[in-house]
Design a protein around this nucleic acid. Structure first.
Length: 224
DNA sequence: GCGACAG
DNA sequence: ATCTTGTCGC
């Protein structure tokens, strides 16, 4: 894939926060994806003590969800994990993986939040901006805001609220399983994002793009 | 000042 | 994120 424009990632945490506050204005919180042909899932993993990040992108055809492409790269990072600054740790590796993707996914699922973030720009929004593609944040726990427990049946959901504003949705993708936290990444509406998450979550808690990316990411780590 | 805190 | 065995349930 072609990457629009990038920026330095080797920043101090204070500089990173300033960059987030500047980039935030460029996020688009609307958009409907009409003819979805391909969806992608991106993820990263690493071994406890190491600073080598294994980033992967898996592309699936939609709606059948057949995997059509898998890409993995291993990149050294110097940035630690700091809640709210995940993009500065995993971003460079993810971008490198996307450079090697040949397909043209219509929307990308990221592991982590989109705008449901302290400064409104989580990794899904940040990557969506750099890639200039519609993106969705699918997190397994909350970073900011709060949500009531959705009903236990698949498809029930409750808003993630912060200061009375809806910044995402807690979605039950599988009966009895814990909900996933969906938020807009970039160039997509919350409604469309939730619809795609439910449409691609088939039998498991995590939507298939994210789940496949997880599987590949862990496999790559074990082999390293 | 204290506690919370995606992956 | 990763560390880890068995165990409960379809």
């Amino acid at each position: 894939m072609e990457i629009r424009e990038t920026h330095p990632f080797d920043l101090t945490s204070a500089e990173a926060i300033r960059l987030q506050e500047r980039l935030r204005a460029q996020i688009h919180l609307s958009g409907d994806i009409h003819d979805v042909s391909f969806v992608a899932g991106a993820d990263a993993s690493y071994t406890k003590g190491s600073d080598v990040i294994h980033a992967v992108v898996v592309v699936l055809r939609y709606p059948d969800l057949t995997v059509v492409e898998r890409v993995s790269v291993s990149v050294v990072t110097g940035f630690p994990y700091i809640p709210g600054l995940l993009a500065f740790r995993e971003g460079p590796a993810l971008i490198e993986a996307f450079r090697r993707v040949r397909s043209e996914p219509d929307v990308i699922f990221f592991d982590g939040h989109g705008i449901a973030h302290p400064r409104g720009i989580g990794i899904a929004s940040h990557m969506g901006l750099l890639l200039d593609r519609p993106s969705i944040g699918v997190a397994k726990s909350l970073l900011t805001g709060s949500a009531a427990k959705p009903g236990f049946m698949r498809g029930s959901m409750t808003p993630i609220l912060r200061d009375g504003e809806t910044i995402g949705m807690a979605v039950r993708t599988k009966e009895w399983a814990k909900p996933v936290y969906v938020s807009v990444g970039h160039r997509i509406s919350l409604e469309a994002a939730v619809d795609l998450v439910l449409a691609t979550a088939r039998g498991y808690r995590l939507p298939e793009p994210t789940r496949q990316a997880h599987l590949l990411s862990n496999a790559v780590r074990k082999e390293s």
